[in-house]
């Protein structure tokens, strides 16, 4: 204690563990995939539309799962609603300066958008078989897809909400007094970039499973992943620098895991792969995507547990 590198070393760990790690990862994917889907909806070719729908198909279940994980992590899960409504006054509970408070609202909003888009996608593919849907929603839902204006708006707002959900978690960690987390302001940036890289990787992986290699969007995703990975590497470097003396928290097993579980296999190797061959082989895409996903997951493991164990 006496030679603590930073005042953050005198605090108690909040016991945020696997639920939170998973939430950060899956929440990131949800936000990221929706964002990509929205991107494709706007910039993509008509052939890419399945890719976009894929994004929405991933986003909604993922955000549901996220909410579930968050609730399960509460010591009093049945009080999850206290996050949104003040328990004694029953007025809305919103603290603009508390990331967790905004985050809860953001998750709610994003949940809504991703639900709409999810249904929209289903509608577009004419998958809403049940008579109920047929009669009412489905014409409505159709309008939630581009080129309908409502569709555009939903996609834009949803995309932004998605990005928020993907990124606020890093800010939430920073807005504490825990070692590492609050010793750098860059975690939000790191998470958002990593969310992008993992999401692109996931979509690529799925796209490939369905044998859509022909789709122009896939190639674009590949290019994007390359860029984002490079970006992520830079941001991570910046994080390390910004930690300063608090870096002590990573001069241990966690640091090793970061290097040999995240940086090398999860960032550098995929980067090299993506630069080496412009034209991807089946296998290399799979490995690259898989590595990125694993790396992205481990990144969150390291960030959370390296502080939790102090």
């Amino acid at each position: 204690m006496i030679d603590a590198p930073s005042s953050t070393w005198f605090t108690t760990n909040p016991h945020w563990q696997w639920y939170i790690v998973l939430y950060f990862f899956i929440g990131g994917l949800a936000g990221g995939c929706y964002f990509l889907a929205a991107l494709i909806d706007h910039l993509g070719r008509v052939e890419d539309r399945p890719l976009a729908r894929l994004g929405y198909y991933v986003a909604f279940p993922a955000v549901l799962l996220s909410g579930l994980l968050l609730t399960l992590d509460l010591s009093r899960p049945l009080r999850f609603w206290h996050m949104l409504i003040e328990r004694n006054t029953f007025e809305p509970m919103f603290k603009a300066w508390s990331p967790m408070s905004i985050g809860s609202w953001a998750l709610l909003a994003f949940g809504l958008f991703s639900f709409i888009s999810f249904m929209g996608a289903l509608a577009e593919e004419d998958r809403l078989r049940w008579p109920a849907f047929r009669r009412l929603q489905w014409p409505a839902f159709r309008t939630t897809r581009p080129p309908a204006v409502t569709g555009l708006i939903v996609a834009v707002l949803g995309g932004l909400a998605g990005l928020f959900v993907a990124g606020y978690t890093g800010v939430l960690l920073a807005v504490t007094n825990r070692p590492i987390w609050s010793d750098t302001p860059l975690l939000g940036m790191l998470f958002i970039v990593s969310a992008a890289s993992t999401s692109t990787a996931l979509l690529m992986l799925l796209a490939q499973r369905y044998g859509w290699r022909a789709l122009p969007g896939v190639a674009a995703l590949q290019r994007m992943d390359g860029l984002v990975l490079a970006l992520e590497l830079l941001v991570l470097a910046a994080v390390v620098v910004s930690l300063g003396s608090a870096l002590r928290g990573w001069l241990n097993a966690w640091g090793a895991l970061l290097l040999f579980g995240v940086i090398i296999p999860g960032l550098i190797v995929p980067l090299v792969l993506s630069w080496r061959q412009r034209r991807f082989t089946e296998a290399s895409i799979a490995t690259m995507a898989a590595l990125v996903l694993i790396g992205g997951f481990l990144l969150r493991v390291v960030v959370i547990f390296s502080s939790e164990t102090i």
Partner: peptide, 30 residues
């Protein structure tokens, strides 16, 4: 970070910029 990701997106999809596709698109199904 978000902006950079956004830019990366724009950049990656830049040469596909074109009129928004209409209709359900080809029947490729997940």
């Amino acid at each position: 970070g978000a902006i950079m990701v956004g830019l990366a997106g724009l950049f990656s999809f830049r040469d596909r910029t074109s009129s928004l596709g209409t209709g359900p698109g080809p029947e490729v199904r997940p």
